[in-house]
């Protein structure tokens, strides 16, 4: 564990807490893409299958449970909660995310570290996480104005993988045989997808204005 990875995990946790706060405090999920939340639930379920087979540390196991439980709770809330689900922008959240799942599964079958069930699913989860934010970014552009909590949620979600890139650079230079090129390439793509959001987020922060994404 190094500081970059720890900061990345904390930033990721903060993004989830902000989303839970928004949904709980405002009893609304307007501006949030259910499809992105479903993709994240799939990412965590596919990646943390080793939760019961490989014990790495208490921290690692606890965080995996928190990520799986929170992502499923958010999906349940947006689908079933009688008050929250009424505020879901169903007509705006139309990204065909099934194509993302199919493409990532196909890529994972072609490119993975070892052709085993767990490794293919792990690579699938890494590829899917890189593109999971797309429905959310499309929804933000369509819904025009972005409320503060939603903007902060997306910002921290983008920042977490940027910390992980620093972690991979650090591990590359400090550990002899560290080679996580699948994670690194996907992590770079993932963070790059946030580039324009970060730009508009910075502009809105500098001008102290409302976050506006160009349609």
């Amino acid at each position: 564990m190094n500081i970059f990875r720890f900061l990345g995990d904390m930033t990721h946790l903060i993004s989830i807490l902000i989303l839970l706060l928004k949904i709980y405090a405002t009893k609304s999920c307007s501006g949030i893409s259910l499809k992105t939340q479903e993709l994240y639930a799939l990412v965590f379920l596919a990646r943390y299958l080793d939760l019961f087979t490989d014990f790495i540390s208490v921290y690692n196991s606890v965080m995996k449970v928190v990520f799986i439980a929170s992502s499923l709770a958010i999906v349940w809330c947006m689908r079933r909660h009688r008050v929250v689900r009424r505020s879901y922008d169903k007509e705006l959240d139309t990204f065909r995310h099934y194509f993302l799942v199919a493409a990532c599964l196909a890529l994972a079958l072609l490119v993975q570290e070892k052709f085993t069930f767990l490794e293919v699913l792990w690579a699938f989860s890494i590829y899917l996480e890189a593109v999971a934010i797309l429905p959310q970014l499309v929804l933000l552009q369509r819904s025009g104005n972005v409320d503060n909590l939603t903007g902060q949620y997306v910002f921290f979600l983008g920042a977490y993988r940027a910390f992980y890139i620093l972690n991979w650079i650090y591990r590359y230079f400090t550990e002899t045989h560290f080679s996580r090129w699948i994670s690194c390439v996907s992590g770079l793509v993932q963070t790059a997808l946030y580039a324009d959001f970060f730009y508009y987020y910075f502009i809105s922060w500098k001008n102290n204005s409302k976050l506006q994404l160009p349609a």
């Binding site: 995990d9 790495i56 990520f67």
Partner: peptide, 10 residues
């Protein structure tokens, strides 16, 4: 086995 085999990252 080497660290990079074990998926020690979240």
């Amino acid at each position: 086995n080497s660290t990079n085999d074990v998926k020690d990252e979240l």
